[in-house]
C-alpha cells in the first residue's frame, strides 16, 4: 500500500486549530508566507519557526506523523543548506580543501533553512487540520470579492474540490494498476530512459482512460442533480467567524507588524 500519510493528507482531530474557520487559517498562512519573505534575520525567522512548531504540537498531530510526511523534502532542504553554506562569498571562517565556509554563508544557509521549514510546516499544518471541503469553501469565500472583477471564483473552488477529491482516488487506482501489471510481470524499475518510458505505458494508458471515464460519469451525475455553473448555492455548514478567529487574526497581525517594525528599525537590539 502506498504511504497515505503524505503532505496534504487531512488528519481529523478536534484541536483548537482544527476548529478554526478555514479563512482564518488561510489568511494566517498568507501572513506567514509574506513574513517569511520580508524577514531576513535568523532571529526573527527563528521566532516564527518556534511559533509554528508550537502550533503544530498543539494541533495534536504526533511529531512522528509530521516527520513522516516531511521526510521526502529533507533532501531538498539539505541541498539548499549545503549550497548556501559553501557557495556564498564573504569572510572566510573555515576551509576544507576547495570548500570554504564564510560567515555570510552560515547566516544565509540558516535563513534559507528557517524559511523553508516555516513555509513547509505552515502549509502542512493547514492541510493536516483542514478538510479539503473546508479548505475550498474558505478559499471560495475569500475570493468572492474578486468576483466583481470577473474572477470565476465558484469554478475555481469547484475545480479545486474535484482535484482534491480525486487525488486519493487516482492514487489508489495507480496503486492498483501497478499491482495488476506487476502481477503480469511488468518491471517498473527498468534501467535507461527508453525502457523507463516503455515501462510506464501499461500504467499511463489505463490511468488516463479511467480518469476520462470518471470525469464523464461525474459530469453526468452532477447534471442529473441539477448542477449549473454560476447558480446560487447554499452551504451545508456556512462558515462563521468566532471570537477565537478574530482573536487569532489579531494576534497574527500584531506579531507580523511587530516583526516588521523591528526589521525596519535595524534589527533586534544587540
Amino acid at each position: 500500500m502506498l504511504n497515505i500519510n503524505t503532505i496534504g493528507q487531512y488528519i481529523p482531530g478536534n484541536s483548537l486549530i482544527h476548529r478554526l474557520d478555514p479563512r482564518t487559517k488561510l489568511l494566517s498562512l498568507l501572513i506567514t508566507i509574506v513574513l517569511v519573505f520580508i524577514l531576513d534575520e535568523p532571529l526573527s525567522l527563528g521566532i516564527l519557526a518556534l511559533g509554528i512548531i508550537t502550533l503544530t504540537i498543539t494541533s495534536g498531530i504526533k511529531p512522528k506523523m509530521f516527520w513522516q510526511a516531511l521526510r521526502p523534502v529533507v533532501i531538498i532542504l539539505m541541498l539548499a543548506l549545503f549550497l548556501q553554506l559553501f557557495f556564498t562569498p564573504g569572510e572566510k571562517i573555515w576551509a576544507i580543501g576547495p570548500l570554504t565556509i564564510t560567515r555570510e554563508g552560515v547566516i544565509n544557509s540558516g535563513v534559507v533553512f528557517l524559511r523553508l521549514v516555516v513555509m513547509l510546516l505552515a502549509a502542512y499544518l493547514i492541510t493536516a487540520t483542514t478538510s479539503p471541503n473546508e479548505l475550498t469553501h474558505g478559499l471560495e469565500k475569500l475570493l468572492k470579492p474578486f468576483g466583481k472583477f470577473g474572477l470565476p471564483y465558484g469554478e475555481i473552488a469547484l475545480m479545486l474540490t474535484i482535484a482534491l477529491r480525486f487525488i486519493p482516488t487516482l492514487t489508489a487506482e495507480a496503486e492498483r494498476l501497478i499491482k495488476a501489471q506487476e502481477a503480469r510481470g511488468a518491471d517498473f524499475n527498468a534501467k535507461g530512459l527508453t525502457n523507463k518510458a516503455k515501462a510506464v505505458l501499461p500504467l499511463i494508458v489505463p490511468l488516463f482512460i479511467n480518469a476520462f471515464k470518471r470525469a464523464d460519469e461525474l459530469a453526468v451525475a452532477m447534471e442529473a442533480r441539477g448542477y449549473r455553473i454560476g447558480a446560487p448555492r447554499g452551504k451545508l455548514k456556512p462558515l462563521k467567524f468566532n471570537f477565537v478567529d478574530y482573536l487569532i487574526m489579531l494576534i497574527n497581525g500584531l506579531i507580523a507588524v511587530l516583526l516588521i517594525i523591528i526589521k525596519l528599525r535595524g534589527g533586534f537590539p544587540a
Binding site: R176, L177, K179, A180, Q181, A183, R184, G185, A186, D187, L201, P202, L203, I204, V205, P206, N210
Partner: peptide, 28 residues
C-alpha cells in the same frame, strides 16, 4: 501464481489484442 484483480478490463493498455496477450508472457 497469477493474480487477476477485480475488473481486470481496467488494466488493458495495448494497441492490439495480440500485443495485450503478448505483454505478460513476454515479461516472463
Amino acid at each position: 501464481v497469477q493474480l487477476i484483480f477485480q475488473y481486470p478490463e481496467h488494466q488493458l493498455f495495448a494497441e492490439t489484442v495480440w500485443e495485450e496477450l503478448a505483454f505478460g508472457p513476454k515479461n516472463f
